Amino acid sequence: MIALDPARQLGCAVGRVGGKPTLSSIKLGNARTPDEELFGNGASTLDRVIRESGAVAMAIERPFFKEGESNYGTTVVLHGLYGVFVGVAIMRGLRVFPVAVKTWRSVALGTSKFASRQAGKSASMALCEQLGWEASDDNAADAGGVWIWGTSTIAPYGVVSDLIGGLNAAL
């Protein structure tokens, strides 16, 4: 299973159902990188991750627009990356599972209601720490949350023992 939190700083989680994912944050470009180059970087990055991992499924956070928090440029980038990643995954034969932020947060974090965007990201970081998963930043941690949702969606009983074991080890 590959799980993605699409952005210029891509959050990526890769691991088998019932296992422990490897979390990473991959820089696809910066604020000055042209969108076309960013999309090309995203396509080649996901293609490499698929080939190296042998994954057969991908969970991906759906882009959204929130008045007051989103602007046109960010909306174009997030929707463009989403399209690129879904297209590459389908081209490579992966089953794709899109998910809304509030849905994966409800499953992975127990709630989707946080006081702020940053509070939700902090909760993802805290969960990864509790599970003993190394997350270099909140992009990687959010991908871990998407991975929890994705693996629990395709194999709900295959994830439980590993997560409980991780929690018990953290306590």
Rank of each mutant, 00 (worst) to 15 (best):
I2N: 04
L4M: 10
L4P: 01
A7T: 04
Q9S: 13
Q9R: 15
C12G: 05
C12F: 13
A13Y: 02
G15A: 06
R16A: 14
V17I: 15
K20R: 15
L23Q: 11
L28A: 11
T33S: 11
E36G: 05
E37Q: 14
L38Y: 09
G42Q: 14
S44T: 14
R51D: 13
A55C: 11
R62P: 00
K66E: 07
K66G: 01
E69G: 00
S70E: 07
S70N: 07
G73A: 12
T75V: 03
T75Q: 09
L78C: 06
H79P: 00
V84R: 05
F85C: 10
F85G: 04
V86F: 02
G87P: 02
G87D: 13
V88N: 12
V88D: 11
A89Y: 03
L94T: 11
L94G: 05
R95P: 00
V96Q: 11
F97Y: 14
A100W: 03
V101S: 14
K102N: 13
R105V: 02
L109G: 05
T111I: 04
S112Q: 11
F114T: 02
F114Q: 05
A115M: 05
S116F: 01
K121P: 00
S122G: 00
S122K: 11
Q130Y: 06
G132W: 11
G132S: 07
G132Y: 11
W133L: 06
W133Q: 01
W133F: 06
E134Q: 13
N139C: 04
D142H: 01
G145H: 08
G145A: 10
G145Q: 09
G145Y: 03
W147P: 04
W147G: 08
W149Q: 13
G150I: 08
G150Q: 13
T151K: 15
V159N: 12
V160C: 10
V160I: 15
V160G: 07
V160P: 01
S161D: 15
I164H: 03
G166A: 12
G166L: 08
A169E: 12
A170T: 03
